[in-house]
Structure formats: structure tokens, C-alpha cells
Write a protein that binds this DNA or RNA. Structure first.
Length: 590
DNA sequence: GCCGTTTTCGGCCCGACTGTTTTCAGTCG
């Protein structure tokens, strides 16, 4: 958590320095450090204690010292001093799209404005157009930008972005002369939420493509449009950016517009050192401007002596170094996924019948799914009594007897109660094949209470997997206080699986936490937490997060064959069950 | 402010679009 506060602080310092007209490279250094901290997956306190902060990219002696200062005192002297020298309101102005440090300075110096509300009033009064370099149009745009800001344009969840992108790409693909289309930007990198949707098209003539884009049925308002680049707001207020390039530049443009910005900056610096120049049109030799690559994205990387880097890794978090020495991970792919866990039916709060879900899993080509309806104390979700779950088990056993090459695991999503005990007694858990442990209550407990609660569940031999380990809901609920390092350690020791919950509102573990768990050798699982049939599709979203976490097939429970999976579950039970005789898992009792 | 198989000093990524500008600055991604 501390790294996010520090990241914001560094970003604000950069803004303030920019306002003061400081050295641009010094400003950039703060921005780069902010980005490093925002995506850092490890334990910052631990790193600081070990005196290893300077191992982070973009962190040198000075910034390391500032990080230590913040970790010990909870504030940053340099920031406090800087803030006093800059008029209040500046940071607020910089939040307005289209307003940078230069304009902010004019607003403060010439018009004595202090807040965005002042700015809005000044624009309405027509006072802005009197400023040098200002006209009516600029004034109008500022008012529009403030209006948009007030609406608080929300970021899209991944599933919304994916389907919106699909709609646009299908339309653009049909335009005559279009040779290639792709998503780019943060959607292609599968970031957990998407601000603007970026689309890229290869065509010989950009005109018809731009036209089709601006006149699409989903286009609400055109924000900007040039010959090859346009931005629109959809009728639902989501921003979509389109760029059209010549076919010969498609690979270079794809690389360029996929980002991340930090990844690209480092890539282009690498190019400069090799006497090359990278832009959205290709890779060029500086000496004679000869073009070395551009049509295919992989060629761009190859020209720089790098292996092609999967988009999900492009965050300047070690992927460039790995690509240089051929040590990129073999990321998990859709074809590696053999099953899904944590699926609800109308036996608790799901919408669909058991039989329908079971068939849907088979239709997707899965080898197994685990039916995991809620346990008794979660009344709001129609949690099942012990009698009910035993009844469900009977039905599933009968179903299984008729299936070949596909197995439905008898499971349950069992509440971890306030004291860390499970919501069903062990003799019920022992009869289940797959036990998901979850926290659905007591979110406000202290960090030690919640952590101990989860640790106790992890040490229960029958608990297979801990679901949504931090309990957050994106944009709605903060994660509860939990010591993830301790959870990872215990999970590793006990062969307990941690979930990457693929529900687009959850994504829990998140990418950085999952990467940390993966580094420590914890077994992970992607589960869709399906509550209706269409949610099974969220597997694609979970895959994106797993890939961002550098997860390989061998680290993912979903990639085990059915027999390997059953063996894995049994292993934990035999390791932890002590003197109790281990039960066979997945056996078809009568 | 960071960083180094060209450098511990002197570099530090690149181009489109907008509005207002007769040649470009500011902002953005």
C-alpha cells in the first residue's frame, strides 16, 4: 500500500516541478520512479530494511533516501516544502485535460485563479480569450474538459472494454481496403481497468476508416479527428482512440501504441545506444535512415536484439532484460486451461441450473469443473445447509457416473468465519473434492485478525483454495487489511492454492500480488466465480491477469490434467491431516 | 534525478493534433 502513496507523491512532485519550469529530465526521473512504485509487486519495507531500494528501476541514491524517509516518518519533507512554494490550485488545474503546467501558470499569474471552479467561471465570463495565445475555441474546450471531469469518466472493466473493442473491430474490418485491425494500449496489455480504448487499423487509404469510425452506431461525440488519428466518446461516455497506418508500418505502430509508455521509453533508449531510431513507422538506422523493420511487431524487437515480448509483460518490470538474454517466461495460454473452479448454480445465488452449468463446462472442452455453491452462514446468497449440500453431492455423484473424460468436482465455497474456523465441520469438508475458503464478513477486522483468520483456513487440510484473497471490489470496496506475504508463505508451505478471481470487478489476487505469489512458488488458480452462464467467458480476463503476473502453465492449477489435479488435492490432505487417515479424493462413493 | 560493454559527466524517446501561430508552442499518449 505504501508504494502507491509514494507513487502518488512522486507524481505530484513531478507536476509541481514541471509548473516551476524545472529541468525536464529531473521531472521525468520522478515520473519514472512513480511508475516503478505503482507497479512494484514486492514488499517495500523489506527491501528498504535490506538497503536494496536502488535495485528498483529508476531509483537512485536520492529517491531511495526519500522512500526511506516516507516509510519511517510517513511524510516527505521535500514535497511539503515544494507545496508551499507553489500556489494552491495548481495541482487541481493540471487534472483538467488539455491544461498543462504552462496554462496553469497563466491562470494563476494573469488571472489569479485558485480553483477549477474559478477557472470554469472565468471561461464562462469570457475572460480566458483575452489571454495571449488564446481564442474562443480554446476557452470552449476548457469548459468542455471541466464538464467531462465533473462527470468523472469511469474506467472500464476489462470485459466491457473487450466487448466494446470487438464491436468496433468487427465494423472496421469490413471497411474496404482494411488489411489488419488490432486492439492496442492498456487493453492489449490486459490492465485491470481501461481508461481509453485504443484501436489500430492498417489500410492503404485512411479516409474511409476514419469515416466509418466517426459514424459508427456507438459513436456519441467526436473529440478530435485528423487524417489518421481520431478520438470519440461512445454514446455511453467511453473514450475510444483510433489510429490508421500503412500496412508496412502496422507492426511498428502496434508496438508503439501498445506501450506501456515506460516500456517504450526504455526500448527507444536501447535503440539510440545501438545507433537506431524507433517510431511508429519502423526501426531505422540513424546513419543512413535505412528501415530495418516495421511490418511485423516481432521484427521490431528482433532488430533491437530482443525476443518478442508478450504485451501483458510490457510494463518495464524486467521484461526487457529477460528478452535480452532469452529468459522470458512461457506464459500460460487459453489452450492450456483444462478446467474452472468456483462456479455457482441456483442451488445458492447462481442463476443457472446445475445440469446447464455442467454441460456448459463440457461444451467448452474442459476436463473438469468444480461446483462451489455457498455455505450455510451466507444467508444472503442462499447458502446451503449441511442437508442441502449432501443432497447436491448425491446428484453430482450420479451425474459423474454418466460422464467420461470429464469430471464435476464436488465442491463448496465455504465461509471462513470470524475466528478462522470453517462454516462446515471437517467431516463435511472431507466428503468434498474441492473446498474453496472465502471471507464474506468481518472486513473491518484488524490486519492481524484477518491474516490469522486466513492462515487458520490455509492450515485446514481440507481447504484446497483461498478465493479472492483480499476481498476488494474495484471502484467499490478497498481490500481488507491482510498481510499477503504471510499468506503466500503459508500457502506455499501447505500446498494451498490462491485464487486469481477472474470476475472483472474483483481480479483478486491482482496482477502484482499474483506475480509476487508466483515468484515465491505458490500454486495459483484462475477461477471465474461464475454466477451465470456468460461468466464462464471471464476466463479470458483471468488469463490476462495471470499473464501479467508472469504465470507459466506449471504454476496454474487449471493446467493440470484431471489426474494430476486430484493428486495435488490429495497431497495437501495427506501432508496436513496428521494421523488422520487421508481420504481418497474424487472417488465415486456410492 | 538516473545511469554507464562507448561515459562517474553529459547525455536523457518520438510524433500527432490543436489552436493559433505566418513557423510554432503546448499538450497528450
Amino acid at each position: 500500500m505504501k508504494q502507491h502513496e509514494l507513487s502518488t507523491l512522486f507524481e505530484q512532485i513531478a507536476n509541481l516541478l514541471e509548473y516551476q519550469g524545472e529541468n525536464v529530465f529531473r521531472i521525468r526521473a520522478y515520473r519514472r520512479a512513480a511508475e516503478t512504485l505503482a507497479t512494484f509487486s514486492g514488499d517495500l519495507d523489506h527491501l528498504a530494511t535490506a538497503g536494496r531500494l536502488r535495485e528498483l528501476s529508476g531509483i537512485g541514491a536520492d529517491l531511495a533516501q526519500k522512500i526511506e524517509e516516507y516509510l519511517t516518518t510517513g511524510q516527505l519533507d521535500a514535497f511539503e516544502r515544494l507545496r508551499k512554494t507553489v500556489p494552491s490550485g495548481v495541482l487541481e488545474f493540471l487534472e483538467v485535460p488539455g491544461v498543462g503546467p504552462k496554462l496553469a501558470k497563466v491562470f494563476v499569474d494573469r488571472l489569479k485563479l485558485k480553483t477549477v471552479a474559478d477557472l470554469e467561471q472565468a471561461a464562462r465570463d469570457g475572460r480566458l480569450r483575452a489571454l495571449p495565445g488564446f481564442g474562443g475555441k480554446k476557452e470552449e474546450n476548457i469548459l468542455k474538459a471541466i464538464g467531462l471531469m465533473k462527470q468523472g469518466r469511469e474506467r472500464m472493466t476489462l470485459n466491457v472494454a473487450l466487448s466494446l473493442a470487438q464491436q468496433f473491430l468487427t465494423r472496421l474490418r469490413e471497411v474496404p481496403g482494411v488489411l489488419n485491425v488490432s486492439t492496442a494500449g492498456s487493453l492489449r496489455r490486459m490492465k485491470e481497468t481501461i481508461g481509453d480504448l485504443d484501436l489500430l487499423v492498417a489500410a492503404r487509404r485512411p479516409g474511409p476508416v476514419m469515416e466509418a469510425f466517426q459514424r459508427s452506431p456507438w459513436t456519441g461525440r467526436v473529440l478530435a479527428a485528423g487524417m489518421t488519428k481520431a478520438s470519440i466518446l461512445t454514446t455511453r461516455g467511453l473514450q475510444v482512440d483510433l489510429r490508421v497506418v500503412k500496412p508496412a508500418s502496422f507492426g511498428a505502430a502496434l508496438q508503439y501504441f501498445t506501450g506501456s509508455k515506460e516500456h517504450n521509453v526504455v526500448l527507444r533508449e536501447l535503440a539510440v545506444r545501438k545507433g537506431l531510431k524507433v517510431n511508429e513507422y519502423g526501426v531505422f538506422r540513424v546513419s543512413d535512415r535505412h528501415r530495418l523493420a516495421g511490418t511485423e511487431e516481432a521484427d521490431v524487437y528482433r532488430a533491437l536484439g530482443l525476443a518478442w515480448i508478450p504485451p501483458e509483460l510490457r510494463e518495464n518490470n524486467g521484461e526487457l532484460e529477460a528478452a535480452k538474454v532469452g529468459r522470458l517466461p512461457t506464459l500460460v495460454e487459453a489452450k492450456d486451461i483444462r478446467g474452472d473452479f468456483h462456479i455457482h448454480t441456483n442451488w445458492s445465488d447462481g442463476a443457472d441450473k446445475l445440469e446447464v452449468i455442467v454441460q456448459a463446462g463440457k461444451d467448452r472442452g474442459y476436463e473438469y469443473i468444480a461446483i462451489c455453491d455457498h455455505s450455510q452462514s451466507l444467508r444472503i446468497a442462499r447458502g446451503m445447509s449441511i442437508e442441502r449440500i449432501r443432497e447436491q453431492m448425491g446428484i453430482l455423484r450420479a451425474l459423474n457416473a454418466r460422464l467420461t473424460g470429464y469430471q464435476v468436482l464436488l465442491g463448496a465455497e465455504v465461509d471462513i468465519l470470524a475466528d478462522g474456523s470453517m462454516d462446515y465441520p471437517d467431516e463435511v469438508l472431507a466428503d468434498l473434492d474441492f473446498v474453496v475458503g472465502s471471507i464474506h464478513s468481518g472486513f473491518k477486522q484488524s490486519e492481524s485478525a484477518i491474516t490469522n483468520r486466513i492462515l487458520r483456513a490455509i492450515r485446514n487440510p481440507y481447504v484446497t483454495l483461498i478465493a479472492h484473497p483480499t476481498g476488494r471490489l474495484i471502484g467499490e470496496r478497498e481490500p481488507y487489511q491482510v498481510n499477503l506475504e504471510a499468506v503466500f508463505q503459508a500457502a506455499k508451505e501447505t500446498n494451498t492454492v490462491l485464487e486469481i478471481n477472474a470476475c472483472p470487478k474483483r481480479l483478486d489476487l491482482c496482477d502484482t500480488a499474483a506475480r509476487r505469489a508466483q515468484e515465491l512458488g505458490v500454486m495459483l488458480a484462475i477461477s471465474t466465480d461464475t454466477h451465470r452462464l456468460t461468466h464462464l467467458d471471464h476466463m479470458a480476463v483471468g488469463l490476462g491477469i495471470a499473464r501479467r503476473a508472469w504465470v507459466e502453465p506449471r504454476q496454474l492449477l487449471n493446467c493440470l490434467t484431471r489426474h494430476e489435479l486430484l493428486a495435488w488435492i490429495a497431497r495437501k490432505r495427506t501432508t496436513l491431516a496428521g494421523h488422520a487417515a487421508p481420504r481418497r479424493v474424487g472417488s465415486r462413493r456410492r
